[in-house]
Design a protein around this nucleic acid. Structure first.
Lengths: 244, 244
DNA sequence: CGTTCACTTGATCGGTGTCAAGCCGGGTGG
DNA sequence: CCACCCGGCTTGACACCGATCAAGTGAACG
């Protein structure tokens, strides 16, 4: 019976790349699937290591990063629920992947998944859209890394977190509304994300808190109390005589 | 006769995404194609503008960039011969595109191209590989933008230029070989590329020249006289007591 | 109740940005 | 052919942002 196949009750199926597949095709793909769990802090794969699996994230958050010989590290991507993980058509992984929280993955042998892809162009189309979207995000991030100052970077990061969580349709909202954002990252991780040090990140958080733009009710949680101000801070105008 | 269709003598056809198509399919696609020329310095499309064409670059170099309200600008990508240009499946362009040199494009109406894509999965596969490759490059670039210092960035940029030009099979070569690299970019553009100012770029060029790592025979040309040193400079070790 | 790890805050230093001259080379017109 | 001009480049002086080094604080957990 189809009702027994593992994806049947899966939440991700509503929105992940698998949503385009019929029950029949999906159960066919699922026959090679294995669920795996990883603890927070564990490394799933290391830069340059052979890439043998492709996976869909069922829960948790993964950070993708690249390191220099001396240990300097840059986070270059994130994957959380519904996102995919792993590089197709590549013998080795270009990034290291580490779990920010506990993570559950829905893993497929890479070769098998690639073969399946060849016979399912609509799935390949989904992957193309996703790759283009990730490219867009990466480029937006480059703009921040290359051009923005510390305050702007942190404000941009908070907005990015907020946009990732506040599900769509939040385009126009009450100016004084307060938004609670979950932030599973440490200051150090935010720093690696933004190309700065954890001390500078911390200072910027303090500054935002004192300016009543955000509150920090507890670690891992951030309240945005003045979204409008945050948006301005994320892209300050440095052309004319600056305001301070 | 097929011999009359415009791609017949096209050099790009050997390596561009169109190489996977048969003469027949290609001539079918080519029926909607228009060649267009752009002068150096001209803007092909502006950030947020409706994206109506998809194109293959026949000759020249294009820079893709994103700007902040106050004019700060970050180059986020490049396209030269054989690369594609334009965003598919997106109403607007996320980047601005400006010609670094004179450029010739092979343009297709975007919608038409997308439709053609649906019936040609192998072409879509080429685009997926290309998107993943661009994502990889963007992330490598993020590592440089976020973590590297001025000297490392410039060295990295020169290596990147060199790799893009020195056609493959140059893996192992004479340690004292001298490489001539064409650089169509101004100091200002290199700066926008690397997230720094043109003055700092210039200073680093001077430093490399005085260290006999490069020579600058004329504008737009760079000679790499010590590839090994350049590679070391591109990824210095800052962990232990630094060497200077 | 104590240990530990993440975070905060302070003081100092250095790398880059900024502002400001000068230089060089290519193109134009006398 | 030379003089001039202009844009891109180089070089210098200085200021400032953010990295670094160093305590100190707070909260989660055994």
């Amino acid at each position: 019976m189809l009702s027994k196949f593992p994806c049947f009750h899966c939440q991700v199926r509503k929105a992940g790349i698998c949503r385009t597949l019929s029950d029949e095709h999906l159960s066919q793909l699922a026959s090679t699937m294995v669920q795996r769990h990883f603890a927070a802090g564990s490394e799933i794969i290391h830069q340059e290591e052979a890439s043998r699996v492709f996976a869909i994230v069922l829960s948790g958050t993964i950070k993708l990063s690249r390191v220099l010989h001396d240990g300097r590290q840059q986070i270059v991507g994130m994957a959380s629920t519904q996102d995919t993980f792993g590089e197709l058509f590549s013998k080795v992984s270009h990034d290291s992947a580490e779990c920010v929280t506990d993570v559950t993955l829905c893993c497929f042998p890479r070769k098998r998944f690639e073969a399946f892809l060849n016979s399912h162009p609509e799935l390949q189309h989904q992957l193309l859209l996703r790759a283009m979207d990730e490219l867009d995000q990466a480029r937006q991030w480059m703009l921040a890394l290359g051009q923005k100052g510390a305050e702007e970077k942190v404000a941009t990061f908070l907005l990015w977190l907020w946009e990732k969580q506040s599900h769509p349709a939040k385009t126009q909202s009450d100016p004084d509304e307060i938004f609670l954002v979950e932030c599973p990252f440490t200051r150090g991780e935010i720093a690696e994300f933004l190309g700065m040090t954890l001390e500078t990140v911390s200072r910027q958080f303090s500054k935002l808190r004192m300016a009543d733009v955000i509150r920090l009710p507890r670690t891992k949680q951030i309240e945005i109390t003045d979204l409008h101000a945050l948006r301005q801070l994320a892209e300050q105008d440095r052309s004319s005589t600056s305001s301070r």
